[in-house]
């Protein structure tokens, strides 16, 4: 492990420790033993095989999203719109699956359409960023509201299933559903795809390819990139579009693996959770896979903990917010600490 990876690990660990420390203070104020709370979080996430599978189920969409975000964050394109890209991708994938009906090609085509959906939705801010220089943070974020409300409208009126009272689509055909690998659990094929196919592919792209190299150069110094003959605008465009495609894929895997229908509640903010994970994982795919399991464990474990100790459910958002803050701050904290260290040498 080289020194920059080691520093990344320190950063992640430091921010996790600080987050738990601050959370402890609030738990103590709330008359709760923090150690007991963390114990219940752990048990809730990893207590038995079923709970472990549920944690992996939770980790899958956020892993795929944050791998995509890592690509855009690597070249310093701050895609805040994964949530909206997820909705559009999942919607398009669902529509395709329903339209194709039962067939051997239903899943692959619907899967690809979900990628295209997310990519197309991301290509709008990507175009505005690369051609017109409009800040992507604002455009991607605001487009979330457009896409989520648009999908809500589609599910409430034109695409509403005639069988139910709720705003949701028809059930997707069986051939579009990801098979369950362990009976009587929700361990579906999508989890394996995410961890053993998407993760290595993204790792390979980022670490071993010329595209990954270009992403890095553009992110670190766009001026040098331009002078070295890299088409900076093209890279910025592609990075945002690829992260959109992965967010769309995450949405469809959630439909095909868990929900079997498109619902307006398909994502409880996974697109934003992905940002926490990409930052906590330091844009490193391996780090991101660990971070996604960690965050999934916090999400699942917190609901157990809040039931057992009568604590508010909002603790999850509280912890995630603190994590973002400390990850961003940890760079400066570490630099400060390491400076002090140097004097002792």
């Amino acid at each position: 492990m080289n020194s920059s990876k080691l520093i990344g690990l320190y950063r992640a660990l430091l921010s996790i420790i600080l987050t738990f420390l601050v959370t402890s203070i609030f738990l103590i104020i709330n008359n709760t033993n923090p150690l007991l709370a963390y114990y219940y979080i752990f048990i809730g996430a990893f207590g038995n095989i079923n709970l472990i599978i549920e944690t992996l189920v939770r980790a899958t969409p956020i892993l795929i999203i944050s791998l995509g975000l890592a690509i855009s964050f690597r070249c310093k394109v701050w895609n805040i719109g994964a949530e909206g890209q997820l909705y559009i991708g999942a919607m398009l994938g669902t529509i395709t699956a329903i339209a194709l009906g039962e067939s051997f090609f239903t899943f692959p085509i619907a899967f690809i359409m979900s990628l295209i959906g997310g990519a197309l939705w991301a290509s709008i801010p990507a175009f505005m960023k690369s051609k017109l220089g409009i800040n992507e943070v604002i455009t991607t974020f605001l487009m979330n509201f457009i896409s989520i409300n648009f999908v809500q409208w589609l599910l409430s009126f034109p695409l509403k299933s005639p069988e139910t009272l709720f705003p949701e689509s028809e059930r997707i055909p069986n051939s579009a559903i990801l098979p369950v690998l362990i009976p009587y659990t929700r361990m579906h094929l999508g989890i394996v795809i995410a961890f053993f196919l998407i993760l290595p592919i993204i790792h390979f792209i980022m670490m071993k390819t010329t595209f990954g190299f270009k992403l890095k150069v553009v992110g670190e110094n766009p001026e040098v990139a331009r002078y070295s003959g890299i088409d900076v605008e093209k890279i910025l465009f592609l990075a945002l579009v690829i992260s959109g495609a992965l967010a769309g894929m995450a949405g469809f895997i959630e439909v095909a693996g868990i929900q079997f229908r498109m619902r307006p509640t398909i994502s409880p903010g996974y697109g934003y959770t992905g940002i926490v994970i990409a930052l906590l994982g330091q844009n490193n795919p391996i780090g991101i896979s660990l971070a996604s399991i960690f965050i999934a464990a916090i999400i699942n474990g917190s609901s157990t903990m809040s039931r057992m100790l009568n604590q508010p459910q909002g603790i999850v958002d509280f912890i995630q917010g603190l994590l973002i803050m400390f990850v961003l701050a940890s760079n400066y904290i570490l630099r400060y600490v390491s400076k002090k260290e140097l004097i002792k040498l």
Partner: peptide, 12 residues
């Protein structure tokens, strides 16, 4: 500003 990427390695 234009000659090297300071945060990347000599080889890169």
């Amino acid at each position: 500003g234009r000659g090297v990427v300071l945060t990347m390695s000599l080889a890169e």
